[in-house]
Structure formats: structure tokens, C-alpha cells
Amino acid sequence: MRAFEDELRSALRRREPPAGFGNRILSRVEAEERKAVLRPRLFRNPAVRWLAAAAMACVLLIGVALERRAMERRLQAHRAAQEAILALRITRYELNHALDRAMRRGGRDPRQEGQIFSPKEQP
């Protein structure tokens, strides 16, 4: 068993990594350092990063709320316009109806409506 374990030790001995391994790691680390320098010093503090994220979330929520309110106002305006159009239609109908009745009482044929106010009959 001892000889077998020694063979295992020999088989699993440490081996050096391929050439340039250390330099490749240092290059990666330097690249990370450069990235860290580009990031503003203020934002390296995790608390500041959290605060910034919270502020951005607040701005986003306020923006969504304002947009929703504006949309509701636009909808209300549209509904009011529709109601006004409907009211005008009803008024026109009522006026036509009243005119029709008045003409019938005066013995005129409302179907010859076009002749009622013709230039010849006007006083």
C-alpha cells in the first residue's frame, strides 16, 4: 500500500503551468485596474452605489407616475370632447324637430323645407 501511495504521489506531483502564465494573469489584473480607475472614485463605495441605484429607481418611478397621470388627462379630454359632440348632435336633433313642428303648424310642408326660405317668399 505504501508503494502504491508513493506511486500516486509521483503521478500527481505538482507541475508548472504553461510559459507566460504569470504574465497573462498580471495583464488581466492590470486591465481590471484600468477599469477600476475609469470608474469614478465616488462609486467605489458600495453605499454610494446603492444610493445611486435607489435614486435612479425613484426617478424611474416618478417618471412612470407622471406619464400615467398625463395619459389619464388625455383620456379625460378625449371623453369630454366625445360628450360635447354628442351634446351638439342632440341639440341639432332637437332643433330640427322643433323646426319641423313649427312648420307643420304653419301649414308648410317640411319636405319642401328648401322653399320655405326661398328668396321669392321672403317678405
Binding site: 500527481l12 506531483r13 505538482r14 507541475r15 508548472e16 503551468p17 502564465f21 504569470g22
Partner: peptide, 9 residues
Amino acid sequence: RQHQAMVFS
């Protein structure tokens, strides 16, 4: 340099 052989192996 000191530990690369251990980690790589």
C-alpha cells in the same frame, strides 16, 4: 509565482 504550480496542478 510562488503558488501558480499548486493552483494549476
